[in-house]
Structures are given as C-alpha cells and as structure tokens.
Nucleic acid binder design. Structure first.
Lengths: 177, 177
DNA sequence: GGATTATGTCAGTACTGTTGACGTAATTTC
DNA sequence: GAAATTACGTCAACAGTACTGACATAATCC
C-alpha cells in the first residue's frame, strides 16, 4: 500500500479556488454557519441524553401538531426504523403524545405536551438569538433575500414541505388571512 | 410507563409560531436548505464507499493545501481519533498525501493528489450548481447580503477560520492582490 | 536531560442512520 | 365479505461518525 506508481502520489501545492466556476466561498460559509448553528442546541440536548435527531422530531411535531408518522418520515427523510427509537424515547419521557387518527384509525397523530413544547422553545431560543444577531444591521429587504435564497436551495419538488405551517395561529406564510 | 399523571400528557394542538420572538421561519429554512445541499455529494460519495466526513477532509485539504493535522482538527471541530480512520482511508486510496513539516518535522502537512483534487471538484460541482440556481435572479448586492449573513452566523471567535484562504492563487478574500 | 508538543493508535462506547423481515390492525378494493 | 393494501411497530444486524481514555513515539523547547 506504500509504494505504488509514485506519480499518482505527487502533492498538489496550490489551493483550489473559484477558478472552475465553483462557488467554494459560499460552500464553505454554509458549512461553517451550519456547524455553529447546530452547536447551540446540541449542548442543551446533552443534558437530556438526547441528540440532534430528537431535536428535529421535537421541532416538527411542535411546528405541525397532529402530523402523522408517515408525514414526519417524509419531512425528515429518514427511515421508519431510524425514527422509531428516537420517537419512542420522546414519548416515554412525555415530550410527545400519540393520538389515534380521527378519520383513519391506523394513523398516529403526534402532538407535543407542555413539556415537549417547553423543550422545543428552549432549543430554538439560542438559534433564534444567533439569527437575530446575524441580521442585526439588516433591513427587511436583506432578510427577504436570505429567506428567498435558503428556500431556493431546497429541492424544488420538496419546497412544498416548507409552507406547511398550520393555519390555526400563524397565517403568515399561508397567504389566506 | 403508560399511566402516569394524566395532566402532563395532554396534547397541545396549536402550532408553535414566531409569537415568542423566535425565528422559526429561518430555523426551518436553514434545516431544509442544508439537508438538500449535502444530499448532492452524498450520492457520489456512496460510490467510493466514503461518507460526509471524507468530503469535509477532502474539501479543506484542497482549500488549504499544506495544513497540518492539528489545524484540520481545529477547523472540523472533531477529535483526533475521529479524524484518524477517515484520513487513513483517504491516504490509502491516494487522495491525500502527507509530507513532513519543513520547519517542525513532527508536523504532517496534508496535500491533495491529482486524484484527490478531482474528487473534491466532482463533489463541489453539484453544490455549486445548486447555489448558482438559487442566486439566479440575484444581483451582487443580494449575494453580498447572503455572504454577510452566513458569515455572521459563525461564532465570532471562529470567524478567522473562514478567511484563511491561501494567498497563492485566490487573492480575492485576502485584500492583498 | 526533562517537559512539552504533534501525531498515531488501541479499546470501548454512543448516536444516528441503513436494509430486511415480520406482525397487526384498519381501510380499501373487488 | 374475502383479499389486497396501507399505517405503524418491532426485531435483528450492520455501518458511519462521533466520543473518552490511555498509551507510544519522535521532535522540539527550555
């Protein structure tokens, strides 16, 4: 494994750049931004013995109360077996409850409890603080640009997932107020 | 485990919203954007038997050729043991080579090979394409807003890591061209 | 010459994800 | 009403990526 064709192992000493029309600047910024964005809640989660997967489940159950297991799998893009462990823990610790679907009794609608709502808020708080700080000197136009950009980064066919915000309270992204 | 204080298990039926001053809109957009942003290279990596960790190592070795193991650990924010396996695989497959540090012979400077450079480019290409599409109708001002935002999302004390782009070729983010 | 530093490595563990298979209850279809 | 499908749960095995703790080696610093 050590002495093959020596030519193939010649080190390249020049840095890769945006030369090839590749946007390394934003690729890298996105990596750093997300790394630190997720580091905030990770600290809190550790106290509960939870991981990032628990956070994601908790977030979406709070955002779309009553969503079914299948819908949650679709949003998270993980398998049923992968969700099972995490969801079971959240149910056993009374952060989430399951209710039988009203129309289709096979379905399990997922709802947060007061405890689950509180944890979701606690996890989101430092993230929101970070966003607010990042937008500090920005106007509405700049904020809109950023929202538009992030939305455009999502796969077109999955963009529908974003706007599924229950009509009950919000009425902001629904256009039907 | 099923029949505790029933009050604690009462489902909350209303969605969490931006009411509490928490910016759920951007939190969620950021999740979806990053989920799909990383899904592009994941597909390619699978063909090589590599994972996301290999991508990150490959990216930074190409971006900052000659960086040491310690510097790489600092950028990735993982432990030495965690890096070891991934780095060893990339070296064994001739994507990366190690050179003894010129001044300090304890150090191992990491460089990409032609093969490693090619793979890094192949992985970045779909990501860059996605970014270009997302910025399609945006002007320079909008792009600047987005870069500023992403940079501001990074921990202030770690923001220095971003601008470490070798002087050799780029000269764009260095201000010393 | 002794302490520190940079790196490598071994062992054990945790979390999150995967595939495949099987079971049960409810709904739909014919 | 029987058969197929759907929604969900669960068991087993495994992979990738991260962790802590411990120890080894070589080079550098003091």
């Amino acid at each position: 494994m050590t002495d093959q064709s020596p030519a193939a192992r010649k080190p390249i000493r020049t840095a890769i750049t945006d030369e090839d029309g590749i946007d390394f600047a934003i690729i890298e910024l996105f990596f750093f931004a997300y790394r630190d964005f997720t580091s905030d809640p990770d600290q809190i989660l550790a106290d509960y013995g939870f991981g990032r997967a628990h956070h994601r489940v908790l977030h979406f159950v709070n955002r779309r109360p009553g969503l079914t297991v299948a819908e949650l799998l679709d949003v998270l893009k993980i398998t049923k077996q992968s969700l099972a462990r995490v969801l079971k823990q959240l149910i056993d610790t009374d952060h989430i409850v399951q209710l039988q679907g009203p129309r289709d009794r096979r379905q399990r609608e997922l709802y947060p409890t007061a405890k689950g709502r509180a944890l979701a808020l606690a996890l989101a708080r430092p993230q929101s603080r970070r966003i607010r700080a990042a937008l500090e000197d920005s106007g509405a136009a700049e904020r809109a640009s950023i929202e538009r950009f992030l939305e455009a980064m999502v796969d077109p066919e999955l963009r529908a997932q974003i706007n599924i915000v229950p009509a009950q309270t919000s009425g902001k992204r629904n256009g039907d107020h």
